[in-house]
């Protein structure tokens, strides 16, 4: 009896601690939506509930930034990067998961080890190359280099190992399908759950990318949302209602995508790191 009371106290304490941390993690998300609804974001005590100034803030945002252009750029880059990445990484992952070939282990290990290279190491020559290619101030540097990336190939390799029956591949070959047809008609449909995870992760990464866009698309008027919003903040006169609405709008697609897929994403991201 005594033991179970002690257990319950401990148990309640766990709950309290976890709830406090949850509130700490969740509050900034809530707060940005609150601020997005006030044109005068400053008050004492600070706002805790919603106002009614979203239209005012939308006007203010659009008068300071071509936010629709930024939104379109962010969305287009993220969609193109996601579609391409999903294709090439599924293709590569399929090769590692379902073929036997010389040097397979070593090549996969090499690919995984490239993930440890810090991104800043090549950034200056990369910039110069993009200028030389004529890719500077285009979307291409933000899409092309990551199309067949190590993380995606590793993720899809792990996923496809268990989700494609080898018998099915043999049957397709006997039916006379060539390898590319098999990839499109057999592998892709079976890979859908894995593609959903990789797609979400890729979309989020592209949508959030600040450094790359800052270097390659430096003009806020023609850049992505993070660059546009940060430039508005840096030069702003303190009229932040529009900025907060923009921040909230930037978060919205992400929150929706994540809440939809969160369970699978968390499981797969952590499983990958445990194995590595």
């Amino acid at each position: 009896m005594k033991r179970s009371i002690g257990g319950n106290v401990k148990f309640s304490l766990f709950y309290i601690v976890l709830i406090v941390f949850t509130l700490l993690f969740a509050f900034p998300f809530y707060y940005v939506f609150v601020l997005a609804s006030w044109s005068r974001i400053y008050s004492n005590p600070p706002h805790l509930w919603f106002g009614s100034d979203i239209p005012v803030n939308l006007n203010s945002l659009l008068s300071q930034l071509p936010f629709h252009v930024n939104f379109f750029n962010s969305l287009s880059i993220a969609v193109l990067a996601t579609a391409g990445t999903v294709f090439f990484c599924t293709m590569g992952g399929y090769a590692f998961a379902k073929f036997e070939f010389k040097g397979k282990k070593g090549l996969l290990l090499f690919i995984i080890s490239t993930m440890a290279i810090p991104a800043f190491l090549n950034i200056i020559p990369f910039f110069k190359m993009m200028v030389a290619f004529g890719w500077y101030k285009t979307w291409l540097p933000l899409i092309v280099p990551g199309l067949a990336n190590a993380f995606g190939i590793f993720l899809m390799t792990q996923f496809l190992e268990n989700s494609i029956p080898s018998d099915l591949l043999s049957a397709a070959r006997i039916d006379g399908l060539n390898e590319f047809q098999i990839l499109i008609k057999v592998v892709f449909p079976l890979a859908k759950p894995g593609i959903a995870i990789l797609g979400t992760v890729t979309f989020i990464g592209s949508w959030n990318n600040f450094l790359g866009a800052l270097i390659m698309l430096p003009d806020p008027k023609k850049s992505t949302i993070p660059v546009a919003l940060s430039s508005l903040f840096v030069r702003s006169d303190g009229n932040f209602g529009g900025l907060m609405l923009g921040t909230a709008l930037a978060l919205l697609p992400l929150l929706i995508a994540f809440i939809f897929f969160s369970k699978k994403i968390i499981a797969n991201l952590t499983a990958g790191s445990i194995k590595a």
């Binding site: 993690f25 940005v32 959030n208 919003l229 932040f240 907060m244 930037a250 968390i266």
Partner: peptide, 22 residues
Amino acid sequence: FKTAFFLPYITSTVSVTLIFAQ
């Protein structure tokens, strides 16, 4: 709890910074 704990990680650094600035 897992979802709530994970949310900050997937949020863009720019959004986080703009909110925290306030």
